[in-house]
Amino acid sequence: MTSDTATPAPKRSLPSMSLLGPVIALLVLIAIGASLNSNFLGAANITNVLARSAFIGIIAVGMTFVITAGGLDLSVGSMAAFIAGLMILVMNAALPTLGIGVPIILLGMVVAIVAGIVAGLINGFLITALGIEAFIVTLGTMGIYRSLVTWLADGGTLSLDFGLRTFYRPVYFDGILGISWPIIVFALVVILGEILMSFARFGRHCAATGSNEHVAHYSNVDVNRTRLLTYAMLGLLVGVATIMYVPRLGSASASTGLLWELEAIAAVIIGGTVLKGGFGRVWGTVIGVLILSLIDNILNLTDFVSPYLNGAIQGVIIILAVILQREAKAKG
């Protein structure tokens, strides 16, 4: 009778600009790239961009869940470096007994995945059970893992045994039907992530937790369990990304995975996931990752701007993305 008239200006819950913005930005970048360099749309370059996007992309999908549930994880870059170091050490150590073959690769993969899950659980436990701010916990573990890998490498570089490296290489460089493994794994992670986020109970619980944890608690959502799971899942995905990354260079050092956390978080935010939590979009994150990679790629293919300024441009884009998000919200 009266009530519906009170609703000021029927708003849609999601402003369309935040939906379209990243897509338009991506299309503009592709257009710019194509007009600047004829090789840009070639299969080789596209494969290159996607394969390089895969590491950050796989991690960013996990980060989407963490941020949607109201958390943050700054430790992923260091974690990846540490896991890579650990993997290399274990594989080198097992070489005399297992020899070069599939079993040793599988051992390395298991090590990476277990280490990732454990590292994620440690972050999650400190944040949920002890109630410490996610920012502080992961800032701490970021320092710890970075220091551990430096220590393991004794300040230098941990290198995979040369024979092993040759055997392991195809995991990064080969694939099926000309599509390399990192791209395939990235695609699978994205599809599973999108299903989990948009169609499964877990995604709904993440959004509810990030939106208002009190409401979630009063609605029978196990808030701590949900958060813990997001960190464990992110750890797992860092492990997966590392499995793809190690065969590329075959080594790990103090500078492995440097600033990956920045790129992963940036991709998530550019993709339209709300930094404060409560709303997340896995496909948006994919677009965010592609935007970041394309900028890097365009800078490398052209010589207008030095590729060394890539970080600065990424920084500007992150800030712009947040401003656009806020504007869209204010107009909403």
């Binding site: 819950s13 709904r204 509810a208 939106s211 409401v215 608690h217 009063y218 409560g278 709303f279």
Partner: peptide, 13 residues
């Protein structure tokens, strides 16, 4: 408002 409903989300959710 603080414990009952997710104010930023729709009716169905």
């Amino acid at each position: 408002k603080l414990r009952g409903l997710l104010l930023g989300m729709g009716l169905r959710v």
